[in-house]
Simulated assay, not measured.
Amino acid sequence: MLNQVSVFAENTKGALRKMTSVLADANINIYTMLANDSAEFGIIRLIVTDPELAVAKLQEAGYQCHADKVVAVEMGDTPGCLDKILDNLRQANISIDYLYISYNRQAGTPVAVFKTREMETETFLRGKGYTLLDTF
């Protein structure tokens, strides 16, 4: 499983830039980022080079954040790849809390990143022949 940093941040002008500056100043590279908003606050999900340092630096800067474990599975780059993964998970009765698509820079393939509370998900997907990422 990958470590993902989840940050609770105000939905204000310049808020993302302020957060990315903290990471840039700590020499932390962002591999993937998803920002969800609401009226006043949002959750920013990041996969970075050093999640533990990112959490420490962001908390030091006043952010509420924590590290989560997420599953990252390589997808093929053809129509229906994500659907097949999701169908396999459905058949195994594995629930997904959220999902987003990223990109594996080394392999040049899309990656489905998702959060689940089902601990057997990695074993199940590997058994189905999927490649899972431990790093980006």
Rank of each mutant, 00 (worst) to 15 (best):
P110F: 06
I96S: 00
R126F: 07
Y103L: 10
F124Y: 15
F114G: 02
T116G: 11
A92M: 13
R105G: 02
T109H: 03
L99G: 08
R105N: 09
T109G: 00
L125H: 00
Y103I: 09
T123H: 15
Y100C: 06
T116A: 10
E118R: 04
V111K: 03
S95F: 05
G108F: 01
V113S: 03
T121Y: 10
V113M: 06
V113G: 00
R90P: 04
Y100G: 08
Q106K: 08
Y98P: 01
Y100M: 07
R90A: 13
N104I: 04
S102F: 02
E122V: 14
G127P: 10
L125K: 11
K115P: 03
R117G: 15
F114T: 08
F114M: 13
A112C: 12
D97G: 03
Y103T: 05
A107R: 14
G108Y: 00
Y98N: 05
M119K: 11
R105W: 01
K115Q: 05
E118C: 04
I94W: 07
M119A: 12
I96T: 11
E118M: 09
V113R: 00
L125F: 08
I101R: 02
I101M: 10
E122G: 09
I101H: 05
T116W: 00
N93D: 10
Y100N: 11
Y100I: 01
R117E: 14
N104Q: 13
T121K: 08
E122Q: 15
L125N: 01
Y103Q: 09
Y98W: 13
R117K: 14
Y103V: 11
F114E: 11
S102L: 04
R105K: 15
G108M: 00
A92V: 08
A107L: 12
I94T: 02
A112H: 00
I96Y: 04
I94Q: 00
P110W: 09
N104K: 06
Q106F: 06
V111E: 07
D97H: 12
Y98F: 12
A92R: 10
L99S: 08
S102P: 04
F114S: 10
R117A: 14
S95A: 14
G108P: 01
T109M: 07
Y100T: 04
R126D: 09
A107N: 15
I96W: 07
I101Y: 04
E122A: 14
I101N: 09
S102V: 02
F114I: 08
P110N: 05
F124E: 05
T121D: 02
I94P: 01
T109V: 13
V111R: 04
K115G: 08
G127H: 09
S95E: 11
L99K: 06
L125R: 09
R90E: 09
I94K: 02
V111A: 08
S95V: 04
Y103D: 05
I96N: 00
Y103P: 10
G127D: 12
K115D: 05
S102T: 10
T123N: 13
Y98I: 04
T109Y: 06
N93G: 05
F124R: 01
Q106L: 04
G108K: 02
P110E: 05
G108D: 01
D97Q: 14
R90S: 15
M119Q: 15
Y98V: 01
A112Q: 01
T123P: 05
Y100L: 11
N104T: 06
D97Y: 12
A107C: 08
L125V: 03
M119P: 04
